[in-house]
Design a protein around this nucleic acid. Structure first.
Lengths: 126, 126
DNA sequence: CGGTATCCATCTCGATACTG
DNA sequence: CAGTATCGAGATGGATACCG
């Protein structure tokens, strides 16, 4: 790890590179969806997020939000009403990430037909 | 699934949307690394890929390459020498994906310090 | 050399039930 | 309403050994 660092350059193909962890963390489906949803809606309460993202469980939602909060991507706000009100927003860092995620999402959207066709052909010739 | 489709618009927050599967497939670490490596080097043999991507096992490399081949992102070429020679290249579709992946990778690279700092602070206050 | 097959530890995720 | 705790099924990925 330090050997890479002293060379002054990180290489994503090297195991020690933190880029891997970042990609590993933000690459999964729920994370991308949470970020996209927050980007589109600005500020949302926990329940709204759960209702919007079809199929997510409370466990996964909380887990995902906690990680994003830890990474400085999402800000969690608690208003001490009864019952308590909790809302989430993207931080500036989160907004910049949302742009990158949007690139992936858009690519997926634009090419899903091509991919489906490629799969069909591959599966046919096997 | 069909209910979404007939409405003419896919929504990534809906479970039936194939965007999810695409993101799920291309989001993982090995896939991103294989694509990035192929983008940088043009054409590579299996062994070269394995040597370049530190930590990948043959199983994961083959598995990743097969999926990418099936999705029309990578082209596999076999030259029947003895022993056999196999090389991989990105298809045009793969090149466009590489651009999207590069966005994520660049973002990760540019912000990993910020993320590390956020994590430290979060962990300190918990 | 490139790929497959098997086994096995680990992790992920969902379902459920419970707290403030 | 928001979150935690626990459990179990299933996916994931590594190690190993073997084929063409």
């Amino acid at each position: 790890m330090d050997t890479d660092q002293v060379r002054g350059k990180w290489d994503a193909t090297k195991g020690a590179c933190p880029t891997r962890q970042v990609l590993g963390r933000f690459g999964d489906t729920w994370t991308m969806l949470v970020i996209s949803t927050l980007e589109k809606n600005g500020e949302l309460r926990s329940g709204q997020l759960k209702a919007t993202i079809e199929g997510i469980t409370q466990k996964m939602l909380t887990q995902t939000l906690r990680q994003l909060e830890r990474d400085g991507v999402v800000r969690r706000t608690v208003v001490p009403t009864v019952p308590v009100t909790v809302s989430y927003t993207l931080t500036p860092l989160g907004l910049s990430l949302a742009a990158a995620v949007a690139t992936m999402r858009t690519w997926a959207y634009d090419h899903m037909d091509e991919i489906a066709a490629a799969r069909e052909e591959y599966d046919a010739n096997s």
